[in-house]
Amino acid sequence: MKPIKRMTQTAMALALMASGAAAEGDLVIYHWFEYIPQDLLDKFTAETGINVTMDTYDSNESMLAALKAGGMGTYDVAVPGDYMVKIMAGEGLLDTIADGELANKGNIAPEWADPSFDPGRKHSIPYQWGSTSFSVDSDVYSGDINTTDILFNPPAELAGKINMLDAQGEVLATAALHLGIPQCSTDREQLKALNDLLQASKDNWVSFNSDTAKEVLVSGDAAAGMIWDGFSAKAREEKASITYAFPTQGYVVWMDNVVLLNDAPNRDSAIKFMDFLLEPENIAAVSNFARYADGLTGTAEFLDPALATLPEANPHDGAGPGVFVEACDEATQAVYDQIWTNLKK
């Protein structure tokens, strides 16, 4: 049985190699895809000696699902959006950061120091903020794009060529803005209207994709698509005709936050990482990479000057209000979940 014995020995050696990576100074991040420059992680490792491992997700909801399906206790920090911070806190998934634990907490800009989704910043620190709207390839359609009609009642040039984000919260919130109804409505007529609107619009949409939201626009697979502002700015760098819209009906704004997870295997590393991201120079590196705004004071000198005049970050005068996605209660959410399933059936 020599060959098998040899195989077993090699296998065991490889297994030891694979598990040998678990040293003491570790940090496991659960993060959005394409949202942090590798250089910055390398810098963190160089400064602290902590090894960083990162997994990525493509929607707030899938992150929550993965954490609840056995992910807790394996990750140290995650980067949920505003409403998801509130949901996660409510679910008891977040650890509390004690006063004084974060040396750089004072760097948080006053307007983001006490947000409604995490009063007093007990569990989170600001990461980036921006908006979710849609972009249109102006080579394909040159009319007025600053209206949600582009998505829900598109002109002939765009019909059937629209990519939607595969994110329930943002799609349904944008649809609510189009109809002018509240986000967590309990009014039956409004909910029916929302359901009908999505059913009627579906034929105009070619795909639901978050990760490829930029790629489909650049490659021309879609002529219009829901997208985040910074992602659209990156798309414009690759294809100049991609124009980001600020609809008059309003648009979704969001803030992503670094949160400290309960049962974090490396809590100390997590705190160090949060402090690291609270240094203006470091968070500015994220903004320069991802093309979104930060939530700290004192970052101006480190930011790419082009960011200040980015058309994707500066709404025109006629733009509607920016609204956060709201977290509904369980009974209301059940109806919205049903509407989403109806859409994708």
């Binding site: 909801e61 899938s62 699902a65 399906a69 979940d337 989403w340």
Partner: peptide, 8 residues
Amino acid sequence: QFKGNAGN
């Protein structure tokens, strides 16, 4: 139901 929006 396990990895996406629904969580049911």
